[in-house]
Design a protein around this nucleic acid. Structure first.
Length: 151
DNA sequence: TAGGCCATCTGGTCCT
DNA sequence: AGGACCAGATGGCCTA
């Protein structure tokens, strides 16, 4: 159960996704953007593929559309978490677009920066100060974006 | 046009 | 058995 996501918006999204899939009955690819990497190149082969993937040997599998909808919902929740994390990272300009990998790296860096701020008790380049205070230890700190920003 | 980023589909694996 | 999670494949969009 996702916790960081607003339950109402997530639920709305799930409903929308499921409704979309029920409307696109018979099609193997219910993608909104129309891209389906493994989709076949004709309708007949799509249906054939659907039958094949849903029945392996004698074992019946759940309909692909339902599984795809759940996966889209899961991706939606992951993206919501990325968005929540991104909102905690100060940038310039404030609404600068960040990729997912940038969000993770900057969040990690920002946590380190805040930690150094707490430990040194100063907001003036705490990471650099923290480095000197811990001289002799193995810990190494690279140039901190957030220290450079708060001059 | 190449490369980066992303959404989606899919099959496999693990968990409840 | 069904759902959650994950990684690979694929194709679209955008930017330098």
């Amino acid at each position: 159960m996702p916790m960081a996501v607003s339950s109402s918006s997530a639920a709305n999204y799930l409903m929308a996704v499921l409704a979309q899939d029920s409307n696109s009955s018979g099609s193997a690819s219910g993608s909104a953007s129309g891209c389906s990497g493994a989709a076949a190149d004709s309708e007949d082969s799509q249906i054939g593929q659907e039958l094949r993937v849903n029945q392996v040997g004698s074992r019946r599998r759940p309909p692909r559309q339902k599984i795809n909808a759940r996966e889209r919902y899961r991706t939606f929740n992951v993206n919501s978490a990325y968005e929540a994390l991104r909102n905690l990272i100060p940038t310039e300009p404030i609404n600068r677009k960040l990729s997912k990998i940038e969000i993770i790296r900057l969040a990690s860096s920002y946590i380190t920066h805040l930690s150094s701020t707490l430990e040194t008790g100063t907001e003036c380049q705490p990471c650099l100060l923290h480095k000197y205070e811990n001289e002799g230890l193995v810990r190494r700190i690279s140039i901190c974006t957030f220290c450079l920003k708060t001059k």
